[in-house]
Amino acid sequence: MASDPQRVTLAKVAQTAGVSVATVSKVINGRPDVAQQTRDKVLDLLRHYNYGGYRDDLRSHPTVELFFGFERLSIYHTEIIQSVVDAGAREGIAVVVGRRGDHDPTADPAAWARDLAAAGRRAVIAVTANTLSPAIHEALNRVRMPLVLLDPESLPDDSIVSVGATNFSGGHAAAAHLLSLGHRRIAYLGGTEHAWSNQARLHGFRSAVEAVGARMPGELVRHAGTFHAAEGIEHGGHLLAVDPAPTAVFAASDELAAGVIEAARLRGLRVPDDLSIIGFDNTPLAQVTSPPLTTIHGPVHEMGAVALRTALQLAAGEKIDSHHVELATQLVVRESTRPPRD
């Protein structure tokens, strides 16, 4: 293998591949008008010669990009990072974390994809509020970079591989728990209103409430716009100001639930004596709130492992069993829920 990339020119790569210099340039720049067989041959030579960062040791020292389409990460996102990094350590894979604030693939998808390929990434695992644009998918395809969406907030089409949780079932379980305690006036505090995961949790929750003949009037349903605690305080306060007030609140994340607990405290309400609260995700935050939070366990560590394994299978050209995988959620009962006073 050539050890000095400075001695390798595009002409040398082109001569060895039996193509023109222009064709090699097209491959490097992610142009689509190159036959796949030719593209594969050129990329292999670029890695062989270590040209421009195309390393030849990708198989022995593979890396995966864990990309977040958010500038502000939550506690839940740190759990995702931990899950993928742990899975990578078991597989001998290095995980590199990027976020939109550092790199914006929407600005120049082709350049972003080329940079990932040049840095030796084998695949991209993306956590984002919206399904990545067709231009980004095309740019990744050009450099043969498989993509897996992890816990997508928007439902991807059948061509996109995703790993998520059973959000509808989780919302249904949250409502069933509160209903079993005797609550009937229950509020829902969601995150991003039109996000698929948020809507699935709401619809699952609503289906359980309406199945027992209870109602969910519009004033008891709010969407905070994000899943962060600060919005939980603000929007939780609005829900608690409704007359008559709800006896229980289901928040679509543990951070939102923690915000509602604080909103209740500011109004002199005690949890769970005056108000029951249930969250979603079962992050470490749920164990340190006061009182400890009843929540829906999201299988984030299993999701991270499945996403990484699926990404590596795609990178190796292997067939996968399903394009969309949903792992089961589970109710975790702690101290923030109890029967209503009345």
Rank of each mutant, 00 (worst) to 15 (best):
L45M: 06
K41R: 15
H48T: 08
V249T: 09
R39E: 04
A263D: 05
S133E: 13
A174Y: 00
R185F: 02
A258F: 03
G225C: 09
R309A: 15
A11H: 13
Q36E: 15
H177M: 06
R114N: 07
G101D: 03
N282W: 06
M303L: 15
V24M: 01
V64L: 10
L132E: 08
G120A: 12
G69Q: 01
V333W: 11
A174L: 07
A187Q: 10
I75K: 00
V333E: 12
L10E: 03
R206M: 10
L45K: 04
A22S: 15
P246I: 07
G259P: 09
A119Y: 08
S180W: 07
A328W: 01
T247H: 11
V85R: 00
R90I: 00
A286F: 03
P272C: 02
A117T: 05
N167I: 00
T38R: 01
A315F: 09
A311Q: 06
I320V: 14
T226Q: 10
L147N: 08
E255C: 04
P291M: 10
M216I: 15
Y76K: 00
T131D: 10
R47Q: 14
T289V: 03
L269C: 09
V325Y: 09
A173F: 09
G259V: 08
N282S: 13
I233W: 06
